[in-house]
Design a protein around this nucleic acid. Structure first.
Lengths: 148, 148
DNA sequence: TATTGTTATACTCTATAACTATA
DNA sequence: TATAGTTATAGAGTATAACAATA
């Protein structure tokens, strides 16, 4: 698997033109699969996801991660806190900072939402003929390499 | 390339859990690469892209493609028309319909935006060691199969 | 003074409801 | 009556500007 050289610049440009719309379209579908029942926006889910991986995080860290401005993150976190999905605690060393931690209720909701989106994608994967798991792993490997 | 059977449900579920975040993260990066200078929103670019592939399209067709409601598409098209990037012409057979066509100015702007985003992705692709073009084509093939 | 976060306010994008004009 | 699109209006979500608390 790919023991040769890297691909050339011209080839890369041509392939990018095909890869980009395929990724964007699939992402749009995945976004739309998000569970309406819990009433969480995409950004709120993104923040929960970040906190699931790494809690606590400050408002500023979360804003940088989601690429929104601090006032927007203040509001997002306030909404999540009102819903009981995160808690806000002032920093000890630097008391200007506000650290946000995901609650068990937040973890539960996030897991459910992920399960739902995974189910849709899994059903798609299983429905494709002439596709083996080695190929899918290959796809994941390439996408993760691009993301780095 | 995938001459065996389809993958099983359990395998598909496990793979989906890895594939989903990889796709969403890459899509976020690609979205943020969009050129701010022309002042077009993501939906406006999506409409231009659809019309680039297939002009003319009716308001209803465009709304279904972008998965927004017709009133939203009316406004998006109005903005694009005011910017001179599309033209709106009434249908001949059914005069209720409004058909939208991309202009040459629209094509020019879209090409520039795509070039910019492709350049970023192409640079990423070219930078990955031990990756050949066959593998990237494989990735595109799988993503397009999922999208269908 | 600089930084972290918040409050106040406005703008963009999208949605629903009601309407116009065709069919 | 039904359909394609529009207009009117409201609701998210985000941004900038000004401010408070802390460093």
């Amino acid at each position: 698997m790919g023991t040769q050289t890297s691909i050339g610049a011209a080839q890369a440009a041509a392939l990018a033109g095909s890869l980009r719309p395929a990724v964007l379209r699939l992402a749009r579908r995945l976004r739309q699969m998000h569970d309406e029942s819990h009433g969480l926006s995409h950004t709120q889910l993104g923040v929960l996801g970040a906190l699931f991986r790494d809690s606590p995080m400050s408002i500023g860290q979360l804003a940088a991660w989601e690429r929104v401005q601090p006032p927007s993150m203040t509001r997002t976190v306030t909404d999540l806190a009102n819903a009981g999905l995160v808690t806000r605690t002032p920093g000890t060393a630097d008391r200007r900072q506000a650290f946000v931690t995901i609650t068990e209720a937040g973890r539960t909701i996030l897991r459910a939402d992920r399960r739902r989106r995974d189910a849709w994608l899994a059903q798609r994967l299983a429905a494709i003929n002439d596709l083996d798991s080695v190929e899918v792993r290959q796809v994941i490997k390439v996408l993760e390499a691009i993301n780095r």
